[in-house]
Design a protein around this nucleic acid. Sequence first.
DNA 1: ACACACTAAACTGTCGACAGTTGACGGTTG
DNA 2: CAACCGTCAACTGTCGACAGTTTAGTGTGT
Lengths: 241, 241
Amino acid sequence: MNQFNTSIIKKVQTQSLTGVIYNQLEHMILSGTLKPGERINESRLSADLQVSRAPIREACRQLEKHGMVQIVTRRGTFVTNIEVSEVKELYDIRAALETLAAEKAAALATPGDLEELQAILIDMKNAVEADEAMDYFKANVVFHRKIVLISGNLNLESLIEGIYNKASLCRKTNLSVLDRMTISYRQHKDIYKAIRAGNQMEASTQMKHHILDARDALLSSLDSSDMGGDDQVKIDRSACG
Amino acid sequence: MNQFNTSIIKKVQTQSLTGVIYNQLEHMILSGTLKPGERINESRLSADLQVSRAPIREACRQLEKHGMVQIVTRRGTFVTNIEVSEVKELYDIRAALETLAAEKAAALATPGDLEELQAILIDMKNAVEADEAMDYFKANVVFHRKIVLISGNLNLESLIEGIYNKASLCRKTNLSVLDRMTISYRQHKDIYKAIRAGNQMEASTQMKHHILDARDALLSSLDSSDMGGDDQVKIDRSACG
DNA sequence: ACACACTAAACTGTCGACAGTTGACGGTTG
DNA sequence: CAACCGTCAACTGTCGACAGTTTAGTGTGT
């Protein structure tokens, strides 16, 4: 529905003050400077940033649209606070949506698309062999996003983007899970093969399996680390696939 | 993620000026007073409604969040214009999401939930027998919404709500399709039975089948009516299931 | 007649200010 | 000592105004 709802707009927005503030706030939220549940004080922010409250309010509305804050009338805007139970919900939704994406991708992928996917797979393989969790994490995101792109469903694209945003707000997901990179990589390869073969049923099955598997790995790692320190900084090797 | 994103909030919002204007604009859009693609002029609206531009801008942001308008920087806000191809996309997404909802509902439905569903089914049956498309349409929406509610996934709820909003913007979907009420009713009954039996697999299968079936019926009715008059007012008997 | 440059009107983005509401603190009463 | 009530500060909602940008309309040149 909208060519305005994709990542492109972020760059367009940057031209306006609102966009600058949006980026700033987004960064503050994702980096943890603004903690989940914390309130964003419009007046104070406007004083700090030397701008009026208008663009700040606008930016907050954008953030809400993308799921990163919640606005309560006459109370204020609060950084979205996601519980573990909600992460599970989000993974279920993600599984449903990306399963659809994989199914469509299997029917629509061009040779060029397949080449790109393969290139990403190579990046992943390199990351696995070098045990570079961060690199793997990045390639992983690119892989999933590419499949959604191939599906050609713009609505699906922005919906999934929103899910990513919300899920990444749960800092608890940032736990490292060893040994999953290898499994994850294999699953991605299976998805790729199914898409290349044009096998819609298989592609969707593999995708669903992959995401639910990642979800379970994440949840069990959360269980076993509930009493551990809470100051995680590492990238979760299971998160997002 | 937010208990603030449901229909309840609309009543809360009504307390504020922004909420009043939101409702007004929503009504104007859904009733066709504001046509798809049309631009919403902030200054003129503020003059007409005797309020400043601030609450109007706020309302527009809300509308964008719900998918009913699109905002382009320094250009304005435009009523979302949905093409037929996009309706197909939306139905695909809806199928994926409601399939998940049905699956969860089959596992979570309480006796009370089942009673409610059954009551809705009776309403539907009555509507079918009386050939009251409007009544059927309403009961249908209630039925689907109830299943999402049972699934207990709040994120899913607001996502699906957004899909409904967008799809309903395509006025072309408001075509009457005869003979589908009976089929649709039977499908709902099947879904209900699967949920009552606690059969997750069956519930999701039935739901998927039901929605994709409705989608195809809608699309083929659009094909065959492309050259017909464009001033439809009737409720589509296939739309939304 | 058509394409292009220029001018002017209209509209959105941003600003600072005021008013109403909310939540908290402190005092009072049972 | 606990619960309730009233006062007060802080913050959001709303307002009117100004500035920069976009768009439409006019005029000119080919």
